[in-house]
Design a protein around this nucleic acid. Structure first.
Length: 275
DNA sequence: AGTCCGACCCGAACGC
DNA sequence: TGCGTTCGGGTCGGAC
């Protein structure tokens, strides 16, 4: 599942390939991708746009055009980009962009949750600020800022980490990995964490996301970067998907449970539940 | 306002 | 072997 490190991996590669390229022609084969806008309308609007840069906010990929417009892409569960696009039939291909250098970029999405939204100049900031909070890897994401985002919340800290308005870009995998490193039980009420626990969690969130980027993301089954390569972060997991395996710190078998409606892995010894 | 839960998808894993 | 069922995951919208 693409979380911040996977989206960042895609962003950095696409930026190198697409900067200053013009979208000559766009085909969108799936009406869900641009809903409620008709796909042929969005495809026609995109034709002629020149890429100034490819950016990222949280899990959103942002194609910034010279015109001032932005194409906001969310990969959801299984969205991915391919460049150069593979030749031959692909039942999961949802869109293709022909570039002015003669190459094609393909968008694939098995589960069809991904979205493409074309925003007019000036619309981006309001759209994003309504949906997502601070970038965890930027300096503005201080312990004080994080503590404020968690203050007064009775929801489990795991759930708060998944809330994109509390902190942008953390998904199910990196939430579990950050909580293990910070030795915090996923079920702890977010607002009841001690200041030093918030500080520790801020640090480990940044650690695991940074490690994920350095390792080009995590590939469980489907994630591939635009060059078709897998990530390596899955080899550095300490708890995610490791039910029954010994905890690296204390050898206690890792437990799988359900928190905030999500599969959740943790070490019951290192991450004690104070209740 | 914050929290919870179902809906949206479909391939993979599982059960018989 | 083959078929049917369950599960998961990010976000949104509705219910509480």
């Amino acid at each position: 599942m693409p979380e911040l490190p996977e989206v960042e991996t895609i962003r950095s590669q696409l930026a190198l390939k697409l900067r200053s390229r013009r979208f000559d022609h766009v085909e969108i084969h799936d009406g869900r991708l641009t809903r409620p806008e008709p796909p042929e309308v969005v495809a026609a609007e995109l034709a002629g746009e020149v890429v100034r840069d490819v950016r990222r906010r949280g899990k959103y990929l942002i194609f910034a055009f010279e015109s001032g417009r932005h194409l906001l892409v969310h990969l959801r569960m299984t969205g991915s980009f391919q460049h150069p696009a593979a030749v031959g039939p692909d039942p999961h291909r949802r869109a293709v962009v022909n570039l002015d250098d003669g190459s094609d970029v393909a968008f694939r999405d098995v589960r069809r949750f991904g979205t493409w939204l074309l925003l007019e100049p000036g619309e981006l900031d309001a759209y994003l600020s309504a949906r997502i909070g601070d970038e965890p890897l930027e300096g503005a994401f201080t312990t004080a800022v994080f503590a404020r985002a968690l203050a007064g919340r009775s929801a489990p800290i795991k759930g708060a980490l998944l809330d994109q308005r509390a902190v942008a870009g953390v998904g199910n995998i990196y939430a579990d990995e950050a909580l293990w490193r910070a030795r915090i039980h996923p079920q702890r009420p977010a607002g009841e964490l001690a200041r030093q626990e918030v500080a520790a969690l801020r640090k480990t969130v940044r650690q695991v996301l940074g490690l994920g980027i350095a390792r080009q993301g995590a590939t469980l089954s489907t994630f591939r970067d635009p060059n078709g390569r897998k990530g390596r972060m899955q080899k550095a997991f300490k708890v995610y998907g490791l039910e029954g395996e010994p905890c690296e710190r204390c050898a206690t078998p890792i437990v799988k449970t359900r928190v905030a409606g999500r599969g959740t892995w943790f070490c019951p010894t290192c991450q004690p539940d104070p209740r």
